[in-house]
């Protein structure tokens, strides 16, 4: 069987053990996502959004089934191989920004490029370009705790995009932001989706944001209710 989609979930299930109780987080998910998508995953709390995104990002492994990334099964990859996959192909934007507190804005965005051993000149060019793109070109030397929530999330977006990944995963990227800032963040992501040709998949509760996405996956109780057409 060929797996030609950008991301493909085949009969994927994931359970969590809470004490003596096994809680199913995802049940028999089958899913195919094409490259360049700007997609939201919606559903109530506990519906499995974060688990689905963690599996897509290679942060967790499925209990059952198989996940293909660009046709490559990630089932048997080691921790180092998964780290390499994330470093080269996946950008992650976190709900709580998760910037490295001791690094400046510039250094936070530069960090993944250092992991990739990108030369200094190219690093400077890419970081400067992205910080300009997210409107933080005057904040290079600020530390994360000197920024507002919206500014921190923009740094997070720049960091996720700086390695030019083919997939960007964001778990509720606007949850800790006010509605105005949230919309501007999604706007930036949408623009970068077009400019950088990266696939964006993110979870959200916010219907205003869902309306801005091209495709929507709806989850309930660990199962997909509706797939993008």
């Amino acid at each position: 069987m060929s797996h030609n989609h950008f991301i493909e979930f085949c009969n994927v299930s994931k359970d969590y053990q809470l004490g003596d109780v096994i809680v199913p987080a995802l049940k028999n998910i089958n899913l195919a996502i094409k490259k360049g998508a700007f997609m939201s995953i919606v559903g109530p709390s506990g519906s499995g959004k974060t688990t689905l995104l963690n599996l897509m990002a290679g942060l967790d492994v499925p209990g059952k089934g198989e996940i293909f990334f660009n046709g490559l099964s990630i089932k048997n990859l080691s921790r180092s191989q998964l780290a390499n996959l994330r470093l080269k192909s996946i950008g992650i934007i976190f709900q709580s920004f998760n910037l490295i507190p001791v690094l400046t804005v510039y250094e936070n965005v530069e960090y993944p490029l250092l992991l990739q051993n990108i030369p200094k000149t190219e690093r400077r060019q890419r970081v400067t370009h992205l910080l300009e793109a997210v409107g933080l070109d005057s904040r290079h030397h600020h530390k994360p705790d000197e920024l507002s929530g919206g500014q921190r999330q923009r740094v997070g977006i720049a960091r996720a995009l700086v390695t030019r990944p083919s997939l960007i995963i964001a778990d509720e990227p606007s949850a800790n932001l006010d509605s105005h800032t949230a919309l501007s963040i999604i706007d930036i992501m949408h623009r970068l989706n077009k400019e950088e040709e990266a696939t964006f998949i993110f979870s959200t509760h916010d219907n205003n944001i869902v309306r801005l996405t091209d495709e929507v996956i709806r989850l309930k109780d660990g199962e997909i209710c509706s797939l993008p057409s």
Binding site: A57, L59, R79, S80, A83, N84, R86, L87, K88, I92, F94, S96, N98, L99, I100, P101, Y111, P112, L115, Q116, R159, T163
Partner: peptide, 16 residues
């Protein structure tokens, strides 16, 4: 702990 999770999620290898 969360900082460690973050850098590993970004692609930092265990030995790093």
């Amino acid at each position: 702990t969360r900082e460690i999770g973050t850098v590993m999620a970004i692609g930092t290898k265990p030995n790093q």
